[in-house]
């Protein structure tokens, strides 16, 4: 009887995720345009990716992205969360504000930054240019496009981490904080020896999730630059999407997807280990 209770969730999950995922793995070894009969080509798709400069650029961008998101938003989140703890009053107020960008649709966030901030015509950057400041639209410069996109995602994302870290910090035993305070710990000492070790599991979990999410990043890149200019901000997920739906090269798209998944898989292994440990408590 109780097995039947599991049936709807599992059925939907298997049909939408598991079976197509297995098909993706199979498709990676075929040449397929989405319509005609697929041709088996062994590792051909992987070889073509290996020889594709854009693929390496995309992979590099994903790694840069992971590096950015493992440091800046986590540092911002931790700093703001600790300060919320220090401030004592206004915690809820600041939390709600910092969390606002998380609930705004990615498309809208992207367009606000694109049109109202970065744009040389309608944005703040354009206005400051007219006043003589040497600002350029980062999205149109190959050397800066990725960072321009990352800034938008950063704005959208860091508040989530802040709220999670703040929730975790409030669980740190009061006695430890008191003891450190009585011994005259400074703010940084308090952070280094009491608060950060106290929320270590949460920080580790968020770092694992950051790695997973960094290899999935799609929306902001696709909306803001489509991977351009000249593929300078291409990431693996936009590359796979373009290959599948614009070039109709589903086999190569599948191969790229598998590479994305491999990076995720390593992180997922750690994620499940941490999560199931907590689940058993």
């Amino acid at each position: 009887m109780h097995r039947l209770f599991l049936l709807p969730t599992l059925l939907i999950n298997v049909v939408v995720i598991l079976i197509p995922a297995c098909l993706t793995i199979a498709l990676a070894f075929f040449n397929w345009d989405g319509m005609s009969t697929p041709h088996f080509i062994g590792f051909g798709n992987f070889v073509m990716l290996w020889n594709d400069r854009i693929f390496w650029r995309a992979l590099e961008n994903n790694i840069i992205w992971t590096g950015i998101f493992l440091t800046i938003p986590i540092a911002m989140g931790l700093l703001a969360a600790t300060m919320l703890l220090v401030a004592r009053r206004g915690g809820t107020f600041f939390q709600v504000i910092y969390f606002l960008p998380v609930v705004i649709a990615t498309v809208i966030t992207a367009r606000i930054w694109q049109g109202m901030i970065y744009s040389p015509v309608t944005g703040v950057f354009g206005y400051l240019q007219n006043l003589g400041l040497p600002l350029v639209n980062p999205l149109s410069k190959p050397s800066m496009a990725l960072y321009g996109v990352a800034t938008v995602d950063l704005w959208h994302w860091w508040g989530f981490l802040c709220v999670i870290f703040f929730a975790a910090l409030r669980q740190v035993p009061q006695e430890q904080i008191e003891a450190a305070r009585i011994e005259g710990a400074t703010f940084w000492q308090m952070m280094r020896y009491v608060l950060l070790p106290g929320i270590r599991p949460t920080i580790i979990l968020m770092m694992i999730m950051t790695v997973i999410w960094s290899f999935l990043v799609f929306d902001f890149v696709y909306i803001l630059t489509q991977g351009g200019p000249a593929f300078s901000s291409e990431v693996l997920s936009t590359l796979a999407y373009r290959k599948a739906f614009y070039d109709l090269n589903v086999g190569q798209a599948a191969a790229a997807s598998i590479i994305i998944s491999l990076f995720g898989l390593v992180a997922t292994y750690f994620y499940i280990r941490v999560q199931s440990k907590e689940g058993e408590q």
Binding site: N13, V16, P20, L216, S261, G264
Partner: peptide, 17 residues
């Protein structure tokens, strides 16, 4: 279920489509 929360959308998007 935990494993599927971290599965990239691209891993199943194309055959699904």
């Amino acid at each position: 279920l935990l494993a599927t929360t971290t599965a990239p959308i691209q891993l199943f998007l194309f055959p699904l489509y």
